[in-house]
Design a protein around this nucleic acid. Structure first.
Lengths: 109, 109
DNA sequence: AATAAATATCGTAATATTGCGATTAAATGG
DNA sequence: CCATTTAATCGCAATATTACGATATTTATT
């Protein structure tokens, strides 16, 4: 079907999955890495740095914005993007909580 | 197109994106949470716990196995699944490295 | 107001994902 | 060997994602 049965999962599970999905593309990883390095940078710079069309980058930026991990503000005719520190820390915390949960066990094989 | 242009990204970026993608589904999050709680558990139990068909769960298990974060071994006519500790720690480490990279800055707005 | 520059959105094509019924494969028990 | 149980795989339908050209929108400049 291609449609995820969100209703049978907890809000937490859906939220975590959504966060991960927003990050789960090499272009979006690259965009974030770029924003992490620079204080802030305008959309056009990102388009130039990566070998993808402007429309494609714009779409990836939109997906990152959808979970709030980046934000953009208009600066003349350009848009300046940066990491949203608050959301960044939230995502980090959620993932830490997820990964901290596993205590080493005997396992199965 | 629906096809990711992996060739224009670094191996690291592609690898991280792949890891995240494998985890980026509520059913797969739920499966992992279940395996984290139990020492090991058989496929049938997972199917019962979740409201998804056996074929669907089997497919999700396959995707988790594809990044190695879980492993399964045959036990009679059943298959017992568990977290692969080594890969778990690797994934954890990769994500930590990614999230540690951001130092708080002025940002853009 | 008209033009230019930068970005967002639309529309579309190609491919991927999700989910499930049906079937197949593997292992055990009789 | 045959039946049973369990899980993997196949095939399909519905939907989602990725990518991009074309167009629209927004802001600044003249």
């Amino acid at each position: 079907m291609g449609i995820t049965k969100s209703s049978i999962f907890t809000a937490r599970q859906n939220k975590l999955a959504n966060m991960l999905k927003a990050l789960a593309h090499p272009a979006r990883i690259a965009i974030i890495q770029h924003l992490v390095k620079s204080e802030a940078c305008i959309c056009g710079d990102i388009v130039q740095q990566m070998g993808l069309a402007q429309a494609t980058i714009s779409q990836h930026l939109k997906e990152l914005k959808s979970i709030g991990i980046i934000k953009g503000c208009v600066e003349g005719t350009s848009v300046s993007y940066c990491i949203d520190e608050k959301v960044w820390l939230q995502v980090k915390k959620e993932l830490e909580a997820f990964f901290i949960s596993f205590k080493v066990k005997d396992g199965c094989c």
